[in-house]
């Protein structure tokens, strides 16, 4: 089963809903798609936030960690934050192992993450 990624912008927040099987084979396309989205708005010189949703992910190995880490490096350059939402126990276990939560914030849902951004005055149209 292929992995796919649906992206939507909520102002300055990029919401990336992953689905399917996230493995090494699928990671390249995900990276490319997300980097293209990020670069569309990174010229604006204001923080961009990235909210990952893992709700529809049916399989993930450590390649998923790499996808988050690589995107984190780009988001950090804009001064933004990466959020991880909707993880099942097992995806959470892999992410926990890697210590990814020391650089990305875990939130229950996309709505929670958007609320956190909004509260901090971090959502604006651009």
């Amino acid at each position: 089963m292929n992995a796919s990624c649906q992206t939507t912008w909520e102002g300055s927040c990029l919401v990336a809903s992953l689905s399917g099987e996230v493995d090494h084979h699928q990671a390249a396309a995900l990276r490319e798609q997300l980097d293209e989205e990020i670069s569309r708005k990174s010229a604006v010189k204001r923080p961009i936030h990235l909210i990952f949703s893992f709700e529809k992910v049916t399989f993930m190995d450590s390649s998923g960690i790499g996808v988050i880490m690589g995107r984190y490096n780009k988001i950090r350059e804009t001064g933004g934050t990466v959020f991880i939402t909707g993880c099942g126990d097992y995806v959470d276990r892999i992410l926990e192992m890697s210590g990814i939560y020391t650089i990305a914030r875990r939130e229950e849902s996309v709505a929670h993450a958007l609320y956190q951004c909004g509260k901090a005055g971090q959502i604006y149209e651009q």
Partner: peptide, 18 residues
């Protein structure tokens, strides 16, 4: 854990740990 000879930006080095 976290050791990789691959692209450090994209590979987590967590394979054996998993």
């Amino acid at each position: 854990p976290l050791f990789t000879t691959g692209d450090a930006q994209e590979r987590s080095g967590m394979g054996f740990t998993v």
